[in-house]
């Protein structure tokens, strides 16, 4: 079993995986993760790398409460998540975790502002605050001038910045990014990574899954998942 110790100063980790495993199917089940231990103190910035099919996305889904581990325990901010029902897990996702996907996942029939405001709908933000907070979040990612544009009219980099604004506008504790620069050119990728640096400087805990060594090098820590097992790469 590989153990990655927390190196941050904070005493209580924001994220703690204890012997987490995940297998799919019954009978000859496929094991995606095998007994992973991981601690992320608040404010950490971790890159998870590894070959395709190694279990990176499975780990991200478990960290984001989108999936449940088959074995082991996941504590989010000290709270054991195994016993949480769908409503409480959804509540934690809505208010505590932000997601950035490789394919952006913007709704094409809604404007940039409305896409960001969708996070508030489920994130517990009062209705009267939503529009102004969406504007502020979009201004933060440099898209204050494209509030009423539709996603189809944006470049890839702009779309990803909208997705980042949507992910962080509810002030989550944890930002999970799955290949956030996978569909972007180098200039746009740099802009997105600069945003991540900025968010990390603000104290946000960030986990990035990536194949890109350049992206991984921006993180404070790097871990690699190979064949469902996790190990840390010393810097």
């Amino acid at each position: 079993m590989t153990i990655v110790e927390a190196r941050a100063d904070q005493a209580a980790p924001l994220v703690e995986l204890r012997g987490v495993g995940r297998s799919f199917g019954s009978g000859r089940a496929v094991t995606a993760l095998s007994g992973i231990d991981l601690q992320l103190p608040s404010g950490d910035y971790v890159a998870i790398t590894g070959p395709s099919g190694a279990g990176k996305s499975t780990a991200l889904n478990i960290l984001g409460l989108l999936d449940r581990p088959s074995t082991g325990e996941y504590l989010f901010d000290g709270l054991p998540t195994a016993a949480l029902d769908d409503r409480r897990r959804s509540g934690l996702r809505g208010s505590g975790i932000g997601f950035v996907f490789q394919s952006f996942h913007l709704l094409p029939t809604r404007t940039v502002r409305e896409n960001v405001m969708l996070a508030f709908t489920y994130g517990g933000i009062p209705r009267h605050e939503r529009s102004i907070r969406a504007r502020t979040a979009l201004e933060r990612v440099g898209l204050g001038h494209r509030l009423e544009a539709f996603p189809a009219t944006l470049s890839g980099g702009e779309r990803q910045r909208v997705a980042i604004a949507r992910a962080v506008c509810t002030d989550p504790r944890l930002l999970l990014a799955d290949e956030p620069t996978g569909n972007l050119d180098r200039a746009n990728a740099d802009a997105v990574l600069a945003l991540f640096d900025d968010l990390h400087a603000d104290g946000l805990t960030i986990v990035v899954i990536t194949h890109d060594p350049e992206v991984a090098s921006r993180a404070r820590r790097r871990v690699v998942i190979t064949d469902g097992r996790l190990s840390e790469i010393a810097r």
Binding site: D77, L79, L92, S95, G96, G123, G124, I125, P126, E129, I132, R133, T136, A137, E139, R140, V168, C169, T170, D171, P172, R173, L199, D202, G203, L204
Partner: peptide, 15 residues
């Protein structure tokens, strides 16, 4: 577990 913090991220005070 009051997770809405970080004024710089959203540009406003927590709800």
């Amino acid at each position: 577990h009051d997770l809405r913090i970080g004024p710089r991220l959203s540009g406003g005070a927590a709800s």
